[in-house]
Amino acid sequence: MRFGQLSYDLSHLLGGAVLLLSFVLLYQRRIGAVINAFATQGTLLAMAAAWAAYAQGTPGLYLTALLALAVKGVLIPLALHRLVRELNLHRTVETALGVGPSMIAGVALVGLCILVTLPATEGARLLSRETLALAMSVVLLGMLMMITRRNAISQVVGLLSLENGLILAAVGVAGMPLVVELSTAALVLMIALVAGVFAFQIRERFDTLDTGSLEEHRGEQR
């Protein structure tokens, strides 16, 4: 597989698009736009999985694609939008670290991932090596988003996009066993997370979604 072949090109492009969406998540400051970007990322992930199912001839991955599309592309974003509406967070704009520095940090993280992944995967297939670099970048960018945001919903979105990166890695590497099962299990976990417990409880106790206000209750002085 190399450039110019459709099967390679499409996987490569979809992986890159998922990474691009991670950067969009970092760039966006409005919660609504963040959720929409996340929905797009989920949809792209579903397309990547579907294409991998077709190209690798593993029909099980179609299930992963379907799940990703239904849950990440539609259900979770809808639920998050609903949450935002109910909590009246439409216009919230907040970041702990500025957009510029977090983008610079993001690009540096991608560079780091490439430097780490390429030597470690010597001898593997071309596509898997590249996909692994992309997927690891998505994971790290998700983490970065979690630590640079103060808002619980943005942090949840960061966690979810981190999980997107994991699935991308699992899907991209051909012949990985239990991909479907793993992704399903991860999804269930995610849904449980998002099911509002997190957000609603904070809301109930502290009347805000700013996780910064949790710190006052840790029993230690900052």
């Binding site: 090109d9 890159g16 990474l19």
Partner: peptide
């Protein structure tokens, strides 16, 4: 040259 992420970016 194929479809490339870099070109998209």
């Amino acid at each position: 040259l194929g479809l490339r992420v870099s070109l998209g970016l």
